[in-house]
Design a protein around this nucleic acid. Sequence first.
DNA 1: TCACTTCAGTTATAGCATGTAACTGAAGTG
DNA 2: CACTTCAGTTACATGCTATAACTGAAGTGA
Lengths: 235, 235
Amino acid sequence: MADRARTPRERYREQTRGEIKRSAVRRLAEGGVENVALLRIAKEIGLSGPALYRYFGSRDELLAELVTDAYQALADAVRAVDLGGGGRASLQALAAAYRAWALAQPHLYLLIQGTPVPGFEAPAETVERARAVLGPFLTVFAEGRPTPALEPLVAESAAWLREDAAVAAWVERWTGLAADAPGAAVALTGAVTAWPQTHGVVGLEAAGQFTGMGQRPATLLPLQMNLLADAFRLP
Amino acid sequence: MADRARTPRERYREQTRGEIKRSAVRRLAEGGVENVALLRIAKEIGLSGPALYRYFGSRDELLAELVTDAYQALADAVRAVDLGGGGRASLQALAAAYRAWALAQPHLYLLIQGTPVPGFEAPAETVERARAVLGPFLTVFAEGRPTPALEPLVAESAAWLREDAAVAAWVERWTGLAADAPGAAVALTGAVTAWPQTHGVVGLEAAGQFTGMGQRPATLLPLQMNLLADAFRLP
DNA sequence: TCACTTCAGTTATAGCATGTAACTGAAGTG
DNA sequence: CACTTCAGTTACATGCTATAACTGAAGTGA
């Protein structure tokens, strides 16, 4: 935001990159990842083939940037939720926001949470991005008082907090709790449990696997979140 | 099984088809779906390019058959579970079998439950296949007595049972219950809830999204199944 | 102002993929 | 033994990714 329009050249470059990405996202939405072809994108924006390689080193690089952007957008959507209510109301709101974002652009969601793009695998960075999305869940679960059944998972979370300083910092940022505070491990456990549950419903829904089923994901997801809230005794 | 070796020609054809599919599956496991290239498969098994089109009309057709086979294999793996124990023990066993199959061939699992192959979408058939996988879950949840929180979803299941005869038949096959028996809707609700929860954990794990996380999916999944068993008051 | 650099964009080309067409020859069939 | 069926071939059309070599205009410093 600071150095937005340094030089005309850079501004133009940034604009063209954006145009390419927007075309790519549109093609992704219309025909899946196979439809994202540099040649056709180039033709669409009035360039000829190899010109795109000035802007993206390869097709995979372009896709990787779409993934990064999508994570950012999902994180923004989740962060935009007002956690004022706290407790299970906030958890419901987070899950709903997550779902709404995913269903508004199912192809993008499947791109980031579904099958990893073959060549491209950025484990470290992916984890980082996922954490940005899960942050607000930490906040909500920090006030949880888990039932005894959750004990093994809380223990694993506590161990992780002890071993990984980056995780400890992440949890502290969203909960204000130090790594050795009992609430930290609880928050971490809640987030790491809520995430696969939400993804389970949303991922199947985005992939169209619920079509033909009689139950509505809009009923199922809140219900699962409620069960989870019960397990963590959220107010 | 009946007309296995009708004519030598057909037997040869079947054998070649199998060879092609095995090569495709191997390539899928090694380099993802992009690595499944007819030309390279042909070269590998000593044929030259277009010959494969005698056996599969197109690449998509080959992939579609991989999907079908994979569903079958997953259904077999789940059906092989001994439900003698009943109750939550059986639920745990089912989820564990589902997970074990998926992790033994993550690329295949992502192929059937992840991003749908672009061109190819067979909603009706896919639903059918998914049902075959979920059958044993119905059996387990038939003896459930859901907590009041599950009421809305049970109602949706009951409505679905009333409207869709095929679903009613499916449920009856796995539970022995008629569509209007209260247990039928409960079983359906349980299966349709357990499925996304299991998929949520397994899908993320297969996609490698748990690497770098401190919690082990092997801990998380049984725990979630236990919560679910509680909600259905499984013995 | 003018040489010099930087860089967007071009055409040409290599390589590999899917898929079709037309042909060849051997295995099955009445 | 004529005839059909069909696996497999080569040749080719098309479309994609990616690289190489060139062109020309926009920026840059003395």
